[in-house]
Design a protein around this nucleic acid. Structure first.
Length: 295
DNA sequence: AGTAGAACCTGAGCGC
DNA sequence: TGCGCTCAGGTTCTAC
C-alpha cells in the first residue's frame, strides 16, 4: 500500500509509539523478506533506544541510539500495526502475552516506552516485496543515495522540473515514476497529478520543459499538480485500497478523491470536459487519464 | 537511451 | 465449490 503519502501516514502513526521507546526485543519470524535480514538483525537492535523515525521517498528510517540506522520499505503490501504488549508487567515477568499473530506477520518489535508501557509493532507483508536493512555510518545507504527530489515542500518547482525533464524522450508517466527524478511518486499519484496538470501521460517528458512560446508554463502546472496531490493525499491519511494504512488499523480516505485512478469508463470530473477516463498500459502498468482534457 | 517483459510473491475478483 | 486467468500501491533485472 505504499506511495509517499501512505508511507508518511505510517510514519506518523508509528512515531508516538516508537520515538523515544526502547527496543526490548525483536522477532524476525522468517529468514528473509525480499532480501535476507541483515546479520544479527534482532541482536543489533535489542536493548537500544529509538531516537527518531523518518522518511525518505517511500522508505521509513529509524535512528537507533548506538546502533545502525534501520531502513524499511513496505513493498506493495507491507503494513505495520501497533498492539499492547502484555498489559501490566512485573519485573521478572519474562513471557510476553502470547497474543495472536496473523498470517504474514513477519517481524515483531517489542517496545518499552519511557513511562513503562509496553507495546509491540508488527510488520505484516503478504507479498514480501518489502524489506528491512541496516545503514552503517554517516553515508546514506546506497539504496537511498540516488533518490531524486521530494515532492513535499517547496523545492520542486517549475524551474527544477524543467531541468529534470529536459531532453527526456521517455513518456511523461515513466519519467515521473523514476525515483531518481522525483522520489516517492507511484502509480496512483502519477496518474492523479497528470490529470490535475492537464498533461497526457503519453507525452514525451522533454516536451514539458521545451514549451515553445509559453516557456515553463507546463512545467509550472505539473510541479503544482504533483505537490498538491501529494499534500492532499497526506492530509487525507493516504489511500486505502486493499488494506489499511494507519498503524492503528484505520483507513485513509484519499481513494474517495481519485479523479482518474481505477475510474476507466467513467466521466471525467473536470467541469464541462465531457471526456471518458481511459486505461492504458505503460511499462507494464496501468495508467488512467482523460484523453479529452489531458494533452 | 528507451522500453518491453519478466521476475520476485500472495490474494482477491471474475467468468465459467 | 473450484479452476484458471488477470490484476494489484514497487523495484530490479534481462534482452531487444
Amino acid at each position: 500500500m505504499p506511495e509517499l503519502p501512505e508511507v508518511e501516514t505510517v510514519r506518523r502513526g508509528l512515531q508516538p509509539v516508537m520515538e523515544g521507546a526502547r527496543i526490548l526485543s525483536v522477532e524476525a519470524r522468517r529468514p528473509d523478506l525480499r532480501f535476507p535480514f541483515p546479520p544479527d538483525f534482532a541482536a543489533r537492535l535489542a536493548g537500544r533506544r529509538i531516537i527518531s523515525l523518518g522518511r525518505r521517498a517511500k522508505y521509513l528510517t529509524a535512528e537507533i541510539e548506538g546502533g545502525p540506522q534501520l531502513i524499511c520499505h513496505l513493498g506493495m503490501s507491507g503494513s505495520f500495526r501497533i498492539e499492547d504488549d502484555g498489559g501490566a508487567s512485573t519485573p521478572g515477568d519474562f513471557h510476553h502475552e502470547r497474543s495472536k499473530l496473523a498470517a504474514h506477520d513477519h517481524v515483531v518489535f517489542h517496545l518499552g516506552s519511557p513511562d513503562g508501557r509496553k507495546s509491540k509493532v508488527v510488520f505484516n507483508d503478504p507479498r514480501r516485496f518489502g524489506f528491512m536493512l541496516f545503514a552503517e555510518g554517516p553515508e546514506p545507504h546506497p539504496m537511498l543515495a540516488d533518490l531524486g527530489v521530494e515532492p513535499t515542500g517547496n523545492s520542486l518547482d517549475g524551474k527544477l522540473l524543467t531541468e529534470l525533464l529536459r531532453g527526456r524522450k521517455t513518456p511523461l508517466k515513466a519519467a515521473l515514476l523514476d525515483q531518481t527524478v522525483i522520489a516517492g511518486l507511484g502509480n496512483i499519484y502519477v496518474s492523479e497529478a497528470l490529470w490535475r496538470a492537464g498533461l497526457s501521460p503519453r507525452r514525451l517528458a522533454g516536451t514539458v520543459a521545451s514549451a515553445a512560446g509559453r516557456t515553463g508554463e507546463r512545467a509550472e502546472r505539473l510541479a503544482i499538480a504533483i505537490r498538491s496531490v501529494i499534500a492532499d493525499a497526506i492530509a487525507a491519511g493516504g489511500s486505502s485500497l486493499r488494506d489499511y494504512v494507519h498503524a492503528d488499523g484505520s483507513l485513509g480516505y484519499f481513494q474517495h478523491s481519485f479523479s482518474v485512478y481505477d475510474r476507466q469508463g467513467e466521466p471525467c470530473r473536470k467541469p464541462r470536459c465531457g471526456g471518458t477516463i481511459r486505461r492504458i498500459v505503460q511499462g507494464g502498468r496501468s495508467t488512467f487519464y482523460c484523453p479529452a482534457c489531458q494533452r
